[in-house]
Structure formats: C-alpha cells, structure tokens
C-alpha cells in the first residue's frame, strides 16, 4: 500500500523550474532513497511533501488523501516527520528543548518518546542540558533525527543525514536509520552518499535537473554500470 505518492509534481522558484513533473511512491514499511547531484531537486521534493513549498502542478497524496494546500504545521499531526537539510537546529535551545519541539503538538508527558530517542542515541542523553548550537555535526544530526521521531511519524523524511560527517559517523547514522525502519517507520531518504543510501534502501529514484531519470530496486541500480559510473564514482570494466 502506498503511504506517499507524488503525481507529476512541478515546483518553481519564481521563473526557475525546480521540479518538472516528478512522480514517486513510497509504500508502508519501505526505505526509499532519492539520489542525485546538487541542484537536482532532492531537497525541493522533500520540502514539497512537508508543505513548505506549494507545487504549481501535480498532486501529493499521503495516507490516501491529497495533502495539497495543507500548511506545513498541520502535516506533523498527520504523521510526517522531517529532519531538514542542514539539520535545522534551534541553536539557543538545549537538546531536551529541541526534542520537545519535535512533539510540539503532543499533549501530556513525553516519557516514551524520550526513552525511544535516548535508546537510539545514547549520546543525546549525556548532552541533554547542552545548547544544540554547541554540539558537533554528528550530534546535531542525531538531534535532528531524534526530534523528527518525537512525533512518532508514519513517514520520516531525512535530508542528507550524512552531510559533513566523518566516515565512521556516517556508517553509524545509516545503521540507526535501518534500525528506525525495522521499528516500523517508513523512510524517504535523500542522499548524496549514493553508495550507502543504495545499500540501505529497498528502492531508489535518481533525480537530475528536476526529473526522475531512473528508478528501480536499490540493489539493481547499485549494480548498473551507468549508475556506478555517474553516482558511485566507480568505473566498471567493459
């Protein structure tokens, strides 16, 4: 069953057409990855799904309903969690306060939610009282993902979680992403680190200049010579 569907979605920034009819679908329980070069429209796609941008054409359906025109702040309630590009820290707030912001619409105690996040990211428990702006890049990324999980979303949007992290941390973040998925959260993962993303995902879409140029099973794409040359930086012998 499709949890999220984009049909021919077009988005423009003024005269610039950032997305030219993108169609993707994500089924319940999947990890789907969206890969492509800088400026291909990956972040634009995520921002359109979470309501920060309005498409000029096409339809976005979540959980069987069109969510076109639903303001961003109401989509959290429907079950979309978004860890944005650049981590989107509230730098002057503590780690705890940042996490509480993730459950802004939630009334009552957050014991279970905190428990889940601190189990996934024990480091954040140590840093609970520290201002988010003073954390390292990896820790900030943990806050961003943990914060998005605080609303117990059905769909988690991750925008380049590996950006700017040391290789050891990249591997750790990706294994946690798999763990979150195994706990039952559907994930749409935007990445430039195509090798890791294709290893973790079940299906993948490749975006270039606002269009889907390839789609398929992640393992098939990872084997494809053209994909390997263009996105994995690996020359295959012919």
């Amino acid at each position: 069953m499709a949890l999220l569907e984009l049909h021919d979605v077009a988005v423009g920034y003024g005269p610039i057409r950032a997305l030219k009819g993108v169609s993707i679908s994500v089924s319940v329980g999947e990890i789907v990855t969206l890969i492509g070069a800088n400026g291909a429209g990956k972040t634009t796609t995520l921002k359109t799904i979470s309501g920060l941008l309005n498409p000029t054409a096409g339809d976005v359906r979540f959980d069987g309903e069109s969510i076109l025109g639903v303001p961003a702040h109401q989509l959290v309630k429907r079950g979309i969690g978004h860890a944005p590009e650049g981590r989107g820290m509230f730098p002057g707030m503590t780690v705890t306060e940042n996490l509480e912001m993730g459950a802004y619409l939630h009334k009552g105690k957050l014991t279970d939610e905190f428990e889940r996040v601190f189990t996934l990211f024990p480091r954040l428990k140590e840093r609970a009282k520290q201002a988010a702006g003073t954390l390292s890049g990896g820790e900030q990324q943990m806050v961003a993902i943990g914060r998005a999980l605080m609303s117990a979303p059905k769909l988690l949007l991750l925008d380049e979680p590996s950006m700017g992290l040391a290789p050891r941390l990249v591997a750790q973040i990706f294994s946690i992403i798999t763990e979150i998925n195994e706990q039952g959260t559907t994930i749409l993962l935007v990445e430039q680190n195509a090798a890791q993303a294709l290893r973790r995902a079940s299906r993948a879409y490749i975006l270039a200049t606002g269009e889907v140029v390839r789609e398929g099973d992640a393992s098939d794409l990872a084997e494809d010579p053209a994909v390997r040359a263009a996105y994995l930086g690996i020359e295959t012998e012919t």
Partner: peptide, 8 residues
C-alpha cells in the same frame, strides 16, 4: 522553517 516542520 524548521519551527513549522515541528507543528508551530
């Protein structure tokens, strides 16, 4: 922008 994503 992030505040909106949190439901603000």
């Amino acid at each position: 922008e992030t505040a909106q994503l949190m439901g603000v």
